[in-house]
Amino acid sequence: MNQFHKQQIPQAFIYLYDETWTLFLRLRTLLSNFLGDNYRILPHFWAWYIEPGKGKGWPPHRDSADQSVIELYGQEMLVSLSLWLPLTDATPDNGCMSVLPLSYERQYDAPITEPSQIPLQDVLCLPAKAGSLLGWRQDLFHWGGRSHASAKEPRLSLSLEFQNAALDPLCEPLFDPQNPPTPEERLSLIIQQFDKYKHIADLPDNITS
């Protein structure tokens, strides 16, 4: 990813490589625990290189506002899950993740509909060591911080989303984790991510025009 940055290549192109998919495919036990053995990869992913003092993560958002869980026999069943993997230490200085815990939001008189409504006192900052893993249900408000000049290193990270395939697809195509996208499919998916996230991601003009 450092080479991508030096050559001004969007970091999402790292998903052309088998090694990127393998990092997430090793998480089968964890994903099966939350989504069941019959889970699939959603066509949603991204990669970040946040340079010290010059960049910031994505602003507060939910990955999916109303498709994260369903109620089945009086219990919540997780539909989809976002995973976020830091490749360098993610710290408050270089833009680690922050969230609005659902346990707090549920106590409000009304759900948060705009990021500006998030009470700053309720924000939870989530520093994470390189190679650790963060995950959340997709109706959780989350965001990346700003990297300060005092940051000792850039924040490099990857994300990929998954869903319980026993339920209707949230988005197609879904991919079998044992058979990740082919190189041709990966390139097409990367181009789709540029269009999907152009409203929120920092992209070169020639990518989005």
Rank of each mutant, 00 (worst) to 15 (best):
S64C: 09
L158P: 08
G144K: 11
Q121I: 10
L85V: 11
M77L: 15
V123D: 09
S68R: 09
Y108D: 12
S157H: 10
Q75C: 08
S103Y: 07
T88M: 05
R146H: 04
L72H: 12
G144T: 03
L134Y: 10
V69L: 08
S80E: 07
G144M: 00
P60C: 05
G74L: 13
V99G: 04
R62K: 09
Y104D: 05
T88H: 14
G145F: 11
S82Q: 11
D89P: 07
R155Q: 03
H61N: 08
L140T: 14
L81E: 11
D109S: 14
G74Q: 09
R155T: 03
E71D: 15
V79D: 11
G95E: 00
L158T: 09
S147T: 11
H61D: 04
S147R: 02
P115L: 03
S64D: 14
Q75A: 13
P92W: 01
H142D: 04
D122H: 11
H142W: 04
L78A: 10
L81R: 01
P127E: 00
P59R: 09
T91Y: 02
M77T: 15
P86G: 00
I112S: 05
L156K: 14
R155G: 00
M77Y: 13
L102K: 15
L126P: 05
P92R: 02
H61F: 02
G135M: 08
D122G: 07
D139N: 14
R137P: 13
V123Y: 07
N94S: 02
D66E: 12
I112T: 09
Y108Q: 06
P111C: 04
P119H: 03
L158I: 06
D122I: 01
S82M: 14
L120M: 15
Q138R: 13
P119V: 01
H61W: 08
L134F: 11
G74E: 00
Q75R: 07
A110T: 13
S82N: 09
K129N: 06
L160P: 05
D89S: 08
F141Y: 15
Y73S: 15
L78N: 08
Q121L: 07
D139I: 12
P92T: 01
W143R: 11
Y104I: 12
I112G: 04
I70A: 11
A149R: 05
D89E: 10
S82A: 09
L78S: 09
S64N: 15
Y73W: 15
C125G: 10
L140S: 06
E114T: 10
P60A: 02
K152M: 03
P101N: 06
G57V: 12
G57Q: 10
R146I: 12
W58T: 11
F141T: 05
L156S: 03
D89L: 05
Y73G: 14
P127T: 00
L83V: 10
L133S: 04
L87P: 03
C96F: 04
Y108V: 02
P127R: 01
A151Q: 02
S147N: 08
H61K: 06
L134V: 05
A90C: 00
Q107Y: 08
L72D: 15
H61C: 08
I118N: 11
L81V: 07
P119D: 02
C96A: 11
F141K: 02
D66A: 12
Q117R: 08
S68Q: 12
E105W: 00
L156W: 06
H148T: 14
G144D: 04
C125S: 13
V69E: 13
L102Q: 10
T88G: 07
